[in-house]
């Protein structure tokens, strides 16, 4: 068996007295899609930020494609291998969509403008917004902005993608178009770690589901098992709440 693309081992992180992550371990293999859910403040987003070295953790370590995040001498290079999509898109408002996508490939990877633009158009086509390339993000709908942000992450041709509540800031009618793109990615074999409360997406697309609470992984199971026979009481409680709401 190949080594996992992302391996989180016994990671612990605290901000002063607040324990954000407590002995978290998790592996994501190539082509796998794992969904992380849990109440707010449970450490889901923090875990994602630890994986690409945006957050410094005090205990344990994370390996991305065999490279240790803790001992990493070249974090920019490691981060290029992991695309990240944020809740509030975080597109750069002063640049066009095309410039948003080509910035890192040109500046961080050293591609020519032509190469980077070809790549950008390829991924804009994949997320279905080629016609928006020359617009500024402010002119796009929320769903289009998030798809542009996904294209921006894909243009780095990463080994894995991290999604941090990618649909939480969207109006209901726009959630579907973003989930459609993500489903397409997962089916295309992209390795994905997705923080979301979209249980429909989890059921349909995820291989495994992780439930976190208070900085700990409470439950980690294959998707069918997770929904049919959750072991932890806390998971059942959470699932009841979230599924009733839907």
């Amino acid at each position: 068996m190949n080594q996992p693309i992302i391996r989180v081992e016994n990671v612990g992180l605290r901000f002063d007295s607040f324990v954000a992550l407590d002995d978290v371990s998790l592996s994501v293999n190539a082509g796998q899609c794992i969904v992380i859910c849990g109440p707010s403040g449970s450490g889901k987003s923090t875990l994602l930020r630890c994986i690409n070295g945006l957050e410094r953790f005090q205990k344990g370590d994370v390996w991305v494609d065999g490279v240790s995040v803790r001992g990493c001498q070249d974090l920019p290079k490691l981060r290029r291998g992991v695309g990240m999509v944020f809740q509030h898109f975080e597109l750069y408002p002063h640049m066009t969509v095309l410039e948003n996508i080509t910035l890192a490939p040109i500046k961080a990877k050293g591609l020519s403008r032509k190469q980077a633009e070809d790549l950008a158009f390829h991924y804009l086509d994949r997320v279905g917004i080629v016609d928006q390339a020359q617009k500024h993000p402010g002119r796009l709908s929320g769903g289009q902005q998030q798809r542009a942000a996904i294209a921006r992450a894909l243009a780095l041709e990463p080994k894995a993608m991290l999604f941090d509540e990618p649909t939480s800031a969207l109006d209901p009618e726009m959630i579907a178009e973003v989930l459609y793109v993500m489903r397409d990615l997962a089916r295309g074999g992209m390795t994905m770690l997705v923080v979301t409360h979209e249980m429909g997406f989890a059921r349909e697309v995820a291989d495994e589901v992780v439930f976190m609470d208070r900085g700990r992984i409470v439950e980690h199971a294959p998707v069918d098992e997770f929904f049919s026979t959750p072991r932890a009481e806390r998971t059942r409680e959470f699932l009841n709440k979230i599924l009733l709401k839907l």
Binding site: R49, N52, L54, L75, P76, K77, R79, R80, V82, M84, F86, H88, E90, L91, Y92, P93, H94, L103, A104, K107, A108, K109, R152, A153, L156
Partner: peptide, 24 residues
């Protein structure tokens, strides 16, 4: 969060400042 977006795409801190933060 804009800084994190820049860093997460593999830009260095200086590049993030120069291309993303300072223009805004």
């Amino acid at each position: 969060r804009q800084i994190q977006a820049g860093l997460s795409s593999g830009l260095t801190y200086a590049q993030t400042m120069r291309h993303i933060v300072l223009p805004q």
